[in-house]
């Protein structure tokens, strides 16, 4: 069984952390992943930087720009990750935009993920229809879980469709926004989390966007399986560097 599906069976709330590969320094990737595992996170999303990240706010955009300037490429990332399974056992997901994957070659990319020990992919601008028609068989051939996003604007019919195509978890975007735009949740979000929980979907939901600390993590996971922290972690890395990852995670787990 895929590590993501195994993790989702555990009786606990999932803490997932996003970071941009190649930031703050080109060679920080492996050390960030190892430190996150040691600090106790359940799952990691490794961001493959892109020049034009449409769904991201200034924090992740900024980290992507720096990562690309540092020399991060798709080849470089796979090279850095080649021995990652010798030291890391938690699920690893690559999150990136479709164009770099397309240029690498979708099948080559999937094969490389499988070889490296990557468990899943989040490609926000690969639409579910295109995935279903053109790429699903390739992803499945390499045992990769593909994760789709839903938002408060996604219709019930479409959520059911996404649920039927998904085989891991559903990435629930907490509000209509780019990453890092909002912090904290109001009743609008809570109602949305409840509404989705009541749909009894086949796939569990993990919330992303707007989670920055223990308080927002607990709010987000009251009705869901887990939550993803991205921009807040990038800000922490910018401010305190790779050495203080443990403190950031400890606050959330406390």
């Amino acid at each position: 069984m895929n590590r993501i599906n195994q993790k989702l069976q555990e009786n606990k709330k999932i803490v997932s952390i996003y970071f941009t590969a190649g930031f703050p320094l080109l060679e920080d990737t492996v050390s960030i992943i190892e430190k996150l595992q040691r600090a106790g996170v359940d799952m990691i999303e490794i961001g493959l930087p892109f020049s034009d990240p449409l769904a991201d706010g200034p924090t992740i955009q900024g980290s992507s720009t720096i990562a690309l300037k540092n020399g991060m490429t798709t080849h470089k990332l796979f090279e850095q990750l080649k021995d990652i399974r010798k030291t890391v056992s938690i699920p690893l997901i690559i999150m990136g935009y479709f164009n770099p994957v397309l240029q690498y070659g979708v099948e080559t990319f999937c094969a490389k993920c499988a070889e490296t020990g990557i468990d899943g992919l989040i490609i926000p601008d690969l639409p579910v229809d295109v995935y279903n028609e053109e790429y699903k068989t390739i992803f499945e051939r390499y045992g990769l879980v593909n994760i789709f996003l839903i938002t408060p604007q996604t219709s019930e019919e479409r959520i059911r469709y996404i649920d039927s195509v998904s085989n891991g978890f559903i990435y629930m975007v907490s509000s209509a926004s780019t990453t890092g735009a909002k912090s904290g949740f109001g009743t609008e979000q809570t109602d949305y989390f409840k509404r989705i929980a009541n749909m009894q979907l086949k796939n569990q939901q993990i919330v992303g966007f707007g989670i920055s600390n223990k308080e927002t993590f607990e709010q987000a996971t009251q009705f869901t399986k887990g939550a993803i922290i991205g921009s807040a972690f990038i800000k922490h890395l910018s401010q305190y560097g790779v050495q203080n990852i443990n403190e950031f995670i400890a606050e959330i787990l406390s």
Partner: peptide, 9 residues
């Protein structure tokens, strides 16, 4: 239409 879900609606 290769757009993130946030733009779909």
């Amino acid at each position: 239409a290769y757009i993130p879900e946030m733009l779909y609606a």
